[in-house]
């Protein structure tokens, strides 16, 4: 990401920046909780992933793309997106350990080894939820970055013409 965009490094006012600094960690924590406890409470990979993407989008909007581009770029997002999609497929393929596609290989039915309402109660559902959460979050973040990166340049191009 090139830091030569005319409005790139500015971001928003100090009020927005300070609020973002305080709030972002909690939003990400909330998203992660939604993802990890998707098999216990309402939510799951998709909703949690969107919340995480929204937290990143908040950073990009508040601090500007130049600063945000130091730790997450469109390339990073798309790499994580693809990796998580592959990981979800891999969880499904690992089901062949138990005999069929997407078999819950970490938790044999009626095993009674795990207590309900706990994090590790549902076996491979936790892995699938994590993979989907990462996939959706990073995918949407990548689209957001692509939109916000290319828009000012196009306006600049229109201005020159």
């Amino acid at each position: 990401m090139t830091p030569h965009s005319p409005r790139g490094g500015s971001g928003m006012t100090i009020i927005v920046k300070s609020t973002t600094r305080i709030v972002t960690a909690f939003i990400m924590l909330f998203g992660t909780t939604i993802v990890l406890y998707g098999h216990v409470t309402p939510g799951g990979g998709f909703a949690g992933g969107v919340i995480i993407a929204a937290a990143f989008a908040l950073i990009v909007l508040a601090f500007g793309k130049t600063l945000a581009g130091r730790f997450v770029t469109g390339t990073t997002a798309s790499v994580w997106d693809s990796a998580a999609a592959t990981a979800f497929l891999f969880v499904g393929v690992l089901g062949y350990l138990g005999g069929c596609f997407f078999w819950n290989f970490l938790r044999p039915p009626q095993s009674g080894r795990f207590t309900l309402f706990k994090l590790y109660s549902a076996g491979s559902i936790l892995l699938s939820n994590t993979a989907i959460g990462m996939k959706v979050g990073m995918g949407l973040l990548g689209v957001f970055l692509a939109l916000s990166v290319f828009r000012p340049r196009r306006e600049e191009g229109e201005g020159h013409e």
């Binding site: 098999h39 216990v40 799951g44 109660s121 549902a122 559902i125």
Partner: peptide
């Protein structure tokens, strides 16, 4: 069968995981 107390997730990611894929 799945240990997931949220039955929506149990169906989405265990019984019907292929659809979710």
């Amino acid at each position: 069968q799945t240990g997931a107390t949220n039955i929506v997730t149990a169906i989405l990611l265990d019984f019907r995981a292929y659809d979710t894929l």
